[in-house]
Amino acid sequence: MDLFLLVIGSIFVNNILLAQYLGNCPFCGVSKKLGPAIGMGVAVIFVSTLASIFTWIVYHYLLEPQGLEYLKTLVFILVIAALVQFVEIFIKKQSKGLYDSLGIFLPLITTNCAVMGIALLNIKHGFDFVEMIVFSASSAAGFALAILLFASVRERLFISSVPVAMRGTAIALVTAGVMSLAFMGFAGMTN
């Protein structure tokens, strides 16, 4: 039951993008069309879950016993960068189709604050191993959901007449604000 609440909480109530503001650069950059947005969402779910597992293990079995907690920023970003490289090489070798659809998003993910943010939040909340996996996967799913909805909205915006000064990123941010307002309606479902 607690895990179920954790899932609902991290997808809807504390949506990583619309309530915690993480991962806004790809949110604005890759959301002009639905196709790339889906690719980005899937890539983030995949990398973020993997990265959280690795960073959690490194933190609890390597850094904490040595008293090196203060190095977590440096170590986490290295783990994530190495992991992204590795995943890219692996997918390229194993599956051409998957590489064609996800490949271009993988380098972008290294500097995606959502991945690093989820890894840091796992440590901050003091999750155990199972909670950590559930939290990371569902937070990343929340990101995918938000970017998917947002890309659908932006496809409509493209054909509507927006005031010249507001075109592009400006109207996108206002739209994100309205969506964030809608997601605030979920507040109170969990505590």
Binding site: A19, Y21, A165, R167, A170, A172, L173
Partner: peptide
């Protein structure tokens, strides 16, 4: 959160209008 997005979006719009 919604105020943050809205505020930044409107500021960006204002700046674009001024630049134009």
């Amino acid at each position: 959160a919604p105020g943050a997005f809205l505020c930044l979006g409107l500021l960006l719009g204002l700046m674009n209008a001024w630049s134009r």
